[in-house]
Amino acid sequence: MVELITLILFFFALYVIVSLSLNLEFGYGGIPNFGKALSVLTGALVVGGILNRLLIWYFGIEGDFISASSLAAYRMTEIVSQNPLIGLGIFLFCVTMAVVAGAIAGALSILPSAKLKGDYLGVTLLAISEVVYLILFYNTEIVGGYYGVSVPDILAFVPGEYRVYAYTVLALICALLVYLFLEKLLNSPYGRILRGHRENEDLIKAFGRDVMKLRIKTMALGSAIAAIAGVVFVFYSSSVVVNAFNRVEWTFYPFLIVLLGGKGNNKGVVLGAFIFVLLKMLIDFYKFDIKYLLHLPFEAVWLQYIVFGILALLILCYKPEGILKEEPIYTPPIKSRLKTNP
C-alpha cells in the first residue's frame, strides 16, 4: 500500500511539472503544443546522452556506448554513495543543462510555424516531436533507443529501502517549486498578455505585440520546465528507455490533465494531475486483477487507453472549462479595486 502511495505521489509530481508547463503554453497562451513529449524527452536525453558521455570520458571507459554507460553509471553510483554532495551536484548540473536544452528545443520546434494559425502550429509541433522520438527510439547509439541505457543513481547515498521515498520527495520539491514559480510568473501582465494571445492573436498584434516572439519565449520556457521532469524521471528509473517518452504518456495525458483540471488555472491543473495519476496508477497497479475480474481477453493497458480517450472526449464535450474555472488575473492594484468599487 505504501508502495502504491509513493508511486502515485512520484508520478503526480512528474505530471504536475509537465502539465503546468503545458498549462502555461496551452492553457494560458493557447499554443497547441502537441509536441509536449519532446521537451520531457530532452530532459532524458541530457542525462542519458550528455551526462553519460561526460562520465565515460571522465572515467576513460572503452567500448560501445550502452555497455560503457552501464559501467560509468555503476562507478558514479559508487562515488555518490560515499559523497551525497556529488550526487546532488550532478542533479543540479543536469537540471541546469536540461533547462537550457529544453528552452532551445522548445524555441526551435515552434520556429517554423511561429507565424501561423493554431492548426498548422499543432501539426508541425507534433510532427517534429514524433520524428525526434522515432529517431532516438530506433537509433540505439544516441541514447540507447529501445534497449535503453543505465544512468547513475544520484541518491545512492540514501539506504536502499528509502531510495524510492527520497526520489518522491525530490520530485515533489521540484513540482512545488515549479508551481510557485508559475503562479508568481503568471499573476502578472505576462499572464494577461498570454490569455489575450489565446483569445485573439490578431487583436494583440494590432496592439503592438510581436506574436512570434511571445510564442517563441513561451515555448522556450514551457519546454525548459518540462525537461526537468525528464531528468527526475530517468534518475528515478536509473535508466533511459526511449519508449517511456511516447506521445500518449507525455503529450496526450498532460492535455487530458489540463482539460480535466481547468485550463488556465494552475490549482485546477494540480488537482487534475492528482485525479488522473490516481486513476492511472490504480489501473497500472491492479492490471492483473482488472483483467481477471472483467474477464478481459487482452491486457488492461489497452483498456486504459480507451478509457482515457473517452474521458477526454467527455470533458471536451461536457466540461471544457474543467473542474476549476479560470479566474481573472488580479494584480495588486486590481485587487485593491475589488474592495473600493466592487
Partner: peptide
C-alpha cells in the same frame, strides 16, 4: 484537434 488525438488513442486501444 485534441478530440482527434483522443479518438486516435481510443482506436489505438
Amino acid at each position: 484537434m485534441i478530440a482527434t488525438l483522443a479518438w486516435d488513442l481510443i482506436l489505438f486501444g
